[in-house]
Computed example of a mutant assay.
Amino acid sequence: MAIEAWFMDESNEDQRLPHHRHPKEFVSLDHLAELGVLYWHLNPDNYENDEELRKIREARGYNYMDLLDLCPEKVANYEEKLKNFYTEHIHADEEIRYCLEGSGYFDVRDKNDRWIRIGLKPGDLIVLPAGIYHRFTLDTSNYVKLMRLFVGEPVWTAYNRPQENHPARKQYVKGVAEKFSVAVEAH
């Protein structure tokens, strides 16, 4: 089962709603790949012993992992944190998230600066390239359990837009212009 992604409407309604355009405009995995977004579908019930996850981590150098439960009952200042996650930003490194339980949305900007919403459900592992403008929110379930993966020590530094002169952003824009030469593996 492949991940679903779509172009977002311009509504200012609750960020946790799907925000489909009318009519709905879905985005393909190939389009996400052109933006440098990678995707795998794995078995979230077997994440501790998943051979495919081990191979991905080894091949991509993801040697650090932690788990994060996001919900009002487990996160202090939940609404404030959710607001911070939803502020448009980039990172100097990839952002790797594997959904184990619950659901949420990653929004990324395309080449024309339009928002694409990516629905994250159990089993979805996505990699956002360094330098891509993005944001995150939960959906109306208000719960997600994520595995966060990193190369080396974890870095959570967010650089809020605008960041056109940040080295990661410059490299990303150059990569998109050259059309990322990465393959999307959908399962």
Rank of each mutant, 00 (worst) to 15 (best):
F136D: 06
N63Y: 06
M8V: 00
I96W: 00
L70C: 07
L120N: 06
T140K: 15
D14G: 13
R97Y: 03
Y159N: 13
L138S: 08
F7I: 11
V127Y: 09
E10P: 03
K179F: 14
G104P: 02
C99S: 03
L38C: 14
E101N: 06
T140W: 07
I126P: 05
M147S: 13
V108C: 02
S181D: 14
E4T: 08
E52G: 02
A168K: 04
N142M: 01
N49W: 01
H89L: 01
V184T: 08
N165K: 15
N49A: 00
M1S: 15
E101I: 00
F150P: 08
V144F: 07
Q171W: 04
E101L: 07
R109V: 01
H41G: 11
N46M: 05
Q163G: 05
L125P: 02
I56F: 06
M65T: 04
Y86I: 09
P72N: 07
F85N: 00
D45F: 03
F7L: 13
A76K: 07
K179Y: 15
N165R: 11
P162C: 03
V127R: 12
C71W: 04
D30Y: 09
Y78S: 01
A2R: 08
E95F: 10
S103V: 00
A183I: 10
Y78D: 01
P44M: 08
M147A: 15
H19S: 03
E153S: 15
M1F: 11
A186G: 04
V173S: 13
T137W: 08
V173D: 15
D110I: 05
K111C: 05
K55P: 04
E185H: 13
I3C: 10
H22N: 14
D45P: 00
E13S: 14
G36Y: 09
K121Y: 13
Y62W: 14
D14Y: 12
E13K: 15
